[in-house]
Amino acid sequence: MSTQYATFHLAGHLFGVEVRRVQEVLTEQPRTPAPLAPPAIGGLINLRGQVVTALDLRRRLWLPDREEGQVAMNVVVRAADEVWSLLVDSIGGVIEAADASFEPPPDTLSGPIRELIRGAYKLDDALLLVLDVDRVLELEATPA
């Protein structure tokens, strides 16, 4: 048995989201900042006439901010009754990961990020961290 993941890179890590959760992947989009919003909110984008909230995954996962001028790609995911865009550094491909190689979050991960990762797949050349999309989008839990 295996599961398909859409993968992307974030501060040197390889992350994956179940393919069925991903609606589409977009290059950098103009974003409108949302003042007073939690810091992890990366702004609002126009997705073919629909206003979609962007979540800055680096901030959400307590990783250092993107450098000035570094573009952010959009991974558009469906959650409950809303559509969100996850801001990531670059897009990987779709990876078929064998369930057998799945493990709980590695010990090397610590802090808040550990709570937001469901586990990891040991791939030949890298470690694929599986994002818990629903938890990531529970923003109340984000310390301001």
């Binding site: 103009p30 949302a34 919003a37 909110i41 609002l44 206003v51």
Partner: peptide, 22 residues
Amino acid sequence: LSGALKAIGSYAGATILGDGRV
């Protein structure tokens, strides 16, 4: 707006202006 932004209470919604920006 998404729930997270509605909760702020300062915005009544969003719109898309003539140049396509939100």
